[in-house]
Amino acid sequence: MTPNPYLFIIVFVGVALVFPVIPLGLAWLWRRFFQPSKPGMEKNATYECGVESLGDAQIQFRSQYYLYAIIFLIFDVEAIFLVPFAVAFTGLPVGAFIAILIFLLLLLEGLIWAWGKGCLNWAK
């Protein structure tokens, strides 16, 4: 009986976590015990090339970024559907090939529509 390989992936993630956590911890300990704390107005200020910062940075931003994310979701799902199709391809009848072709053409039509609407155009 052999253990499930996913078990080792979990162990691997644990070891990979050690990789950043130990240096972070060491740096924190060094600051905690050896470094003089000298806070100050300028040191705590937001970096903005020497200009005084105006307002919050966590604000609304260009909607184009969201549009890309939504189109991405659709086509990422498509890519996931293509993977089982690809794996089973050599054993599939012609009908299945045509079915996946129709599925892709539908999505491609969506992409062309979004393209025509200017969703993929960054500089309008």
Binding site: T46, E48, A57, Q58, F61, Y68, A69, F72, F75, D76
Partner: peptide, 29 residues
Amino acid sequence: SNSKYPFLGGVRSTSQMISYELSLGLAVI
């Protein structure tokens, strides 16, 4: 970071990475 330059870098990076992830996924099929 709550600062303007990192914020712009962050959203740009997200957009770029998801865009190229599609090509990445389709290229191996």
